[in-house]
Simulated assay, not measured.
Amino acid sequence: MYYLPEPPYFLMFVGFFTGITCGVAFEATLKQIVNTWYKSSAKPADLLDSSTLQLPFLGICVGICVFLASGVEIFLMNRWVSYAISLPMTIFIGALVWTQLGKLLEQLQKGGSKAIDLDAFF
């Protein structure tokens, strides 16, 4: 008897839900930490080192990795290959976002929102 595997639609939904819920938690935590940072004289590097901000970001990365791997698995029908593709991509993009957030917070500390040159984007 031949077994035809079902596509991982449930894992795709779980990954998407995890990414969204952790994103909401990350947004709330980041707002709270930035408000605390604005009132005190802490450095932005100290804010990014706190586990209260790292844990929701890690949850976002895990959720997006599962979502991407499930989406690739629908087309490739191989779980190992799909995770081999999505895991490095998620780690790379997550590291880029984390370093960009750190640079943005440092730039805001130096000169506030006027330090961000919006003319470079337009």
Results as ranks from 00 to 15, higher is better:
80 W>R: 09
102 G>K: 04
27 E>K: 09
120 A>E: 11
52 T>E: 14
36 T>P: 00
37 W>P: 06
36 T>M: 00
113 S>E: 05
107 Q>H: 01
74 I>V: 12
66 V>N: 07
27 E>A: 08
122 F>D: 09
57 F>A: 06
73 E>L: 03
101 L>R: 08
45 A>T: 11
51 S>D: 13
43 K>L: 14
17 F>N: 02
66 V>R: 08
108 L>F: 05
103 K>M: 15
99 T>I: 11
102 G>S: 04
82 S>G: 03
109 Q>K: 07
28 A>H: 14
66 V>W: 02
65 C>D: 14
98 W>H: 07
3 Y>G: 05
1 M>F: 03
52 T>V: 14
59 G>C: 01
100 Q>G: 08
69 A>W: 07
73 E>H: 03
83 Y>W: 12
85 I>C: 08
114 K>D: 15
85 I>Q: 06
97 V>D: 01
53 L>E: 01
82 S>I: 04
37 W>Q: 13
58 L>Q: 07
2 Y>R: 13
29 T>S: 14
70 S>H: 00
27 E>R: 11
16 F>K: 02
69 A>P: 06
47 L>R: 00
37 W>Y: 13
73 E>W: 01
13 F>H: 12
111 G>K: 00
23 G>L: 02
110 K>P: 00
69 A>C: 06
97 V>S: 01
49 D>T: 01
77 M>S: 12
26 F>N: 10
107 Q>E: 00
113 S>D: 10
15 G>F: 08
105 L>S: 07
75 F>K: 05
21 T>P: 03
122 F>C: 05
20 I>P: 02
94 G>L: 00
112 G>L: 13
94 G>W: 02
87 L>R: 03
94 G>P: 01
79 R>L: 10
52 T>R: 15
69 A>R: 04
